[in-house]
Design a protein around this nucleic acid. Structure first.
Lengths: 157, 157
DNA sequence: CAGGTTATATAAGCAGCTTAACTTTGTGGG
DNA sequence: CCCACAAAGTTAAGCTGCTTATATAACCTG
């Protein structure tokens, strides 16, 4: 099989895809607005990643940075913005007061889930056109790529 | 099967992957340096996309913008930088002098191919761990996602 | 309790994109 | 024939999301 062509097609598709994903969609703003929050919110992929990570429980800023794959200052920034809009809260870990634990503001878990849902939709649509085997292979591919590029970038494991 | 989990994992993986892909890798610079060109070159995913697109023949700036999935000014910028480093050339289309045709500078086709090769490597490594079926499913998934997100972003077809 | 390390935050700066406005070239009806 | 409009590209201005370097506070160890 001609893998070279697949590789090149991936090199063409991946950046284009990410530009589309990054393109601000006004949908979430409406969703937030309906809750009486600020209407000019831009929800970036990074914010979505944080919201998803938090569904699995509170996280320190450092853990978020690692899970999302950004530097600690970038994680601080992501949390700043989400906190600014009342989505999440910071409180320092009683066990280690250097650590800042981030969690949903009470009642915002559901709002977050709706915001994430909006992001999920196009992805869901795309996946509905794949078989189970294809969907699994796709995600497996993403995992392999992330690992491979991570190694290239000198990621310590 | 639990598609929701796959969707969420994709939402977590995709942005992380793109950050890794965007991370400047010093490899290409070395490659370029060996040819006597400037050593401080940063080759972004967008530049790689242009270089790949040009392997299929000369392209107008507008065509490049469309293939790469960016606005015309962004395409101009990409071409600017590649031209600055002597990789590509502009000449106006004799048939329509508004059109600017972009093509490799003589002899740079091979250099470009080496630069792209460096980008290909981690991708190639990752794909070598997939079966043929998986690799095809992966690329098919990327295509579906690009289409789906493109539709969401109001892409005219 | 001094000195080093760790977790987060602040500051400064850069790359890549966007929209808006401008220039040049092509086109089609009066 | 020419004038108004459309199209291709560029220039300008501005924003976002990241990075590294630096600062601050808390923890830990001899």
């Amino acid at each position: 099989m001609d893998r070279e062509r697949l590789v090149d097609e991936t090199l063409m598709l991946l950046p284009t895809l990410m530009r589309l994903v990054e393109r601000p969609s006004p949908v979430e703003m409406g969703e937030i607005a309906r809750r009486g929050l600020a209407t000019d919110v831009q929800v970036s992929p990074g914010h979505i990643q944080v919201l998803i990570a938090l569904t699995r429980g509170p996280r320190s800023v450092g853990q978020l940075a690692e899970e999302v794959g950004v530097s600690p200052p970038a994680a601080t920034q992501l949390v700043d913005k989400l906190a600014e809009h009342g989505m999440v809260d910071r409180h320092s870990d009683p066990a280690d007061r250097r650590v800042v634990l981030v969690d949903y503001v009470a009642g915002m878990r559901e709002v977050a889930s709706r915001i994430v849902e909006d992001r999920r939709r196009p992805l869901h649509d795309a996946m509905s056109k794949m078989t189970d085997v294809e969907a699994l292979a796709f995600v497996k591919g993403l995992r392999l790529l992330a690992r491979s590029f991570g190694a290239e970038a000198g990621e310590e494991v």
